[in-house]
Amino acid sequence: MRRTPDVVGLGRAFVCYVAVRTSSSHSLPTLALALIPRAVALNLALGALAAALKLPVYLDSVGTIFVAVLAGPVAGMLTGAVSNAVLGILYSPQLFAFIPVAVVIGALAGWAARLGAFRSVVGAAIAGVAIGLAAALTSVPIVIHLFGGLTPSGTGIITIALRMVFGMSLTHAAQVAALSTDVIDKPLSCVLVALLITRLPARLTERLRTSPA
């Protein structure tokens, strides 16, 4: 049997604890707080746009990465958590299970921005690959322990195909399937954010960057 729920539970509890501790120990400026609900909406809007354009990517983390780059990792983590919680409340409760993935995306995007990765498109793409890898590795244990290794989506079908064709184990097939989507989706999201930030008024980005978070 492939079940060790206590390990996953402890991991998720740790991620949430870190998120809550770091967010409570910092005071986010009002502008960052006001930005978070709009970024949650942007996650949904761009996800809808990607679906309307029939693109093979989700683009549902652009708002999270956007806030993380503008206002720092704490705001990014909070945006990721709130985004999945709110979309879970409004549309599909299964999104609650993936809150740790959104938190990891927000944290890594914020730290990558502090290292200057979003100053160029190439840097943003490299950061996107790293974020995609981390997101895939975070989501796989959740998919395996809560969903049995498959989610009812294209990724689940890729997992089955990989197991049939290459005889991979469930864990490896789930990892490759998650990576195959995330290493395209997250670099594209990061490049989009890097391009979008150049279009914003400089006084606004400066106001957010000089904030204490």
Partner: peptide, 14 residues
Amino acid sequence: ALLPLAGPLSVSLV
């Protein structure tokens, strides 16, 4: 086509 669509959305957001 993504950038001209995402641009107005994100600028209005901020």
